[in-house]
């Protein structure tokens, strides 16, 4: 079962579109709204994102071990269809 996890912001329209994309296809996912998270969880997210050599620009989506930054429906489609 493919695991989809995403870091988002409650203020970001592209994050809303990303959640909508997976919801529309009934693909289950976990998410953390970074701006609603506790400080220590934010730190964990910062460290993980930096390890990916990415900035704290959202949305950031993990499909299994692959990471996609930015609203990218084509990439989601491509990766989900491989599964």
């Amino acid at each position: 079962m493919t695991k989809v996890m995403m870091y988002t912001l409650s203020t970001c329209p592209w994050c809303k579109k990303t959640k909508q994309w997976f919801n529309d296809r009934n693909i289950p996912f976990d998410f953390v709204d970074y701006d609603k998270a506790e400080k220590d969880e934010q730190k964990v997210i910062q460290d993980r994102v930096r390890k990916e050599n990415l900035t704290l620009s959202f949305p950031i989506v993990y499909i299994d071990d692959k990471v996609i930054q930015g609203y990218s429906p084509d990439k989601y489609d491509e990766m989900m269809s491989k599964k």
Partner: peptide, 27 residues
Amino acid sequence: IVEFLLEQEVNLHAQHGIPFCPCKGLT
């Protein structure tokens, strides 16, 4: 998108005193 983003920035401005980008995380 412009209306939504400006609304978010007004709220961020009220919260932080600065209109931060609604799609970038603060540290």
